[in-house]
Amino acid sequence: MKHTLSVVVENKPGVLTRVTSLFARRGFNIDSLAVGTTEDPTLSRITIVCSAADTPIEQITKQVHKLINVIKVQELDPSESVERELVLFKINAAPERRHEIIEIANVFRAKIVDVGRNSVTIEATGATDKVDAMEDLFRAYGIKEMARTGKIALTRGREG
């Protein structure tokens, strides 16, 4: 079972290591990780997608919360939050197939950010399933390289 955790931490050196090493130590796998500052420059938000076989997620949220530099830990319910991921695909594209690939990119409202003699680089954002769907389609052409940022997320607006 996968969980998305939003962890607000003090923006200080070494804090990321404290958080991530805790996951490994307590037997939780990190599937993706995204870090950046928040509206308050003294704070950072770490968005972690993680999974654990048997241990309840509550155990890791409590352990993370114990870290001195951690201000807030929240498990995000997918139906109550907005989730996005950014991805870059560099796809094999001989000139005669370039058009097809661009078509697919347009369907997904992705952007062409670079075109080479034999490749096209596409930038896309979306929820994880959309990014997965694009990846699946582009595999048919051959993905030379791919970089995903990992998910970032915020709870939806109604609770302020």
Binding site: P13, G14, T17, R18, S21, R25, I68
Partner: peptide
């Protein structure tokens, strides 16, 4: 030493 002792201290400082 701060790196090494993260798992065995309540907190540490450099």
């Amino acid at each position: 030493i701060t790196g090494i002792t993260v798992p065995i201290t309540k907190h540490n400082y450099l």
